[in-house]
Design a protein around this nucleic acid. Sequence first.
DNA 1: GCCAACGTTGGC
DNA 2: GCCAACGTTGGC
Length: 154
Amino acid sequence: MNYWLLKSEPSVFSIDSLDAAPRKTTSWEGVRNYQARNMLRDDFRKGDLAFLYHSSCPEPGIAGIVEITRDGYPDASAWNKRSEYYDEKSPEIKPLWYTTDVRLVRRTKQLISLAALRAHEEGKLQGMLLLRKGNRLSITPVDAAHWKFILTLE
DNA sequence: GCCAACGTTGGC
DNA sequence: GCCAACGTTGGC
């Protein structure tokens, strides 16, 4: 089983949105980056766990824990002309983009801020992809050891 | 709003 | 295949 970190801008989709969703579950649609797509398509498995991270907001950080409830599968929003994520390069017969389903497991006891994570950048969280300079990937794998340590920061 | 870093596009 | 131009991300 894998651990991940999923970024989203709370102004677009926040942990409150997920909490309010039916069965606290939603499709993680709209990923339009090849590296992230490859992870969704090849590595995301039902039962994996992920941190939900809020980016581009007053206090960026980890807001909750979600469970991956479905293996990666083609992203139908790519061939929905009414979707803001529509992409003519990804017809239904030849999907280019992938998504998965996520369910809110729980909110973290408090926000685990980026600053709190950075405090361990050269220690327990050395090598964490989120903290790497210039990282912009909206999906990153998380080492099991990093996952465990981050939970102690709550 | 600024800016560094990265990804994508398209001309050649 | 190279690379400049452009667009996006995301912290500050």
